[in-house]
Design a protein around this nucleic acid. Structure first.
Length: 265
DNA sequence: CCCGTGCCCTGGCGGC
DNA sequence: TGCCGCCAGGGCACGG
């Protein structure tokens, strides 16, 4: 599932293909994903710029901003054949190319915003800072009155943006913090370790082209950071630090992998 | 404000 | 072999 690194990789691909191009036509095959009004407004818009915020992609267009979230399985690709997949839900036509949005589970979203609204209404208004921009002391303060496990708090995009289930496990492993440690028990040093580990993990993942687990592909190319996972999906395998078996538990309904020897409350 | 639960959706897998 | 039921998960609505 795409997290910040994968989203950046996708955005880079889209940037290369779409900057300066104008939308001439759109086919929508799943109405809930993009309604008629949004579609109409998009026709004739030129892509001026692409940026990402956490897991969101923002297409800066002539008159609007289009906010795309891939959720678990969303992906963009340039078709090589006419044949449409049953999971292609939105097809964007430009003067000389076609980009398809493919999403097996239909969880992805498109939000069209007037430019003066983009950052003052949801979903971007409440989005926290990315680890790269987040002061560890500010993060520490935001955890002060939180009683949830740190694993759940790392997934809360209002507190810190861009981390999903895979990298949350990897970040806590590197920071040597138990996923069930409560937010209000996180020390200033813990907070620094989390931010530093986040930057380390996410940066390396971006460099490697994004993790491939069940589904992530970018325009057909497979990333390979998944080969470097220390704990996620590694249940029963020996911890690379201490050799004890990696454990799997549920935290906030999410599968969580960790080493109970290396990661302390 | 904070927190837990359920929902959206489909492919894949375990069990029989 | 085939079918059934359950699980996976990001973000949000909802209720306590």
């Amino acid at each position: 599932m795409p997290e910040l690194p994968e989203v950046r990789v996708v955005s880079k691909f889209l940037r290369n293909e779409l900057i300066g191009k104008t939308i001439t036509h759109i086919d929508v095959y799943y109405d809930k994903m993009m309604n008629e009004t949004v579609k109409e407004k998009l026709i004739g818009q030129t892509v001026n710029k692409l940026k990402t915020l956490g897991k969101y992609i923002v297409f800066e267009l002539t008159d609007y901003d289009l906010i795309s979230h891939l959720r678990m399985e969303g992906k963009y690709y340039q078709p090589t054949t006419q044949a449409r997949s049953k999971h292609d839900h939105v097809v964007f036509f430009f003067n000389d190319l076609e980009i398809r949005y493919h999403d097996t589970r239909k969880f992805g979203t498109f939000d069209l915003r007037n430019k003066d609204e983009t950052y003052v209404v949801p979903p971007l208004s409440k989005l926290g800072k990315e680890p790269f921009d987040l002061d560890p002391l500010d993060f520490y303060k935001s955890l002060k009155n939180r009683h949830s496990p740190i694993k759940s708090l790392l997934l809360n995009q209002h507190l810190i943006a861009g981390i999903g289930n895979i990298y949350a496990d990897e970040i806590l492993f590197l920071a040597k913090i138990h996923p069930l440690k409560k937010g209000n028990k996180i020390t200033k040093q813990n907070s620094k370790d989390i931010i530093n580990s986040s930057i380390d993990v996410l940066t390396r993942a971006i460099d490697k082209g994004g993790t491939t687990l069940h589904s992530f592909k970018n325009n057909g190319e497979v990333g390979w950071f998944s080969q470097e996972l220390n704990v996620h999906l590694q249940e029963h395998k020996p911890c690379k630090i201490c050799g004890n078996p990696i454990q799997r538990i549920k935290v906030g309904g999410r599968s969580t992998y960790f080493c109970k020897t290396c990661q302390r409350k």
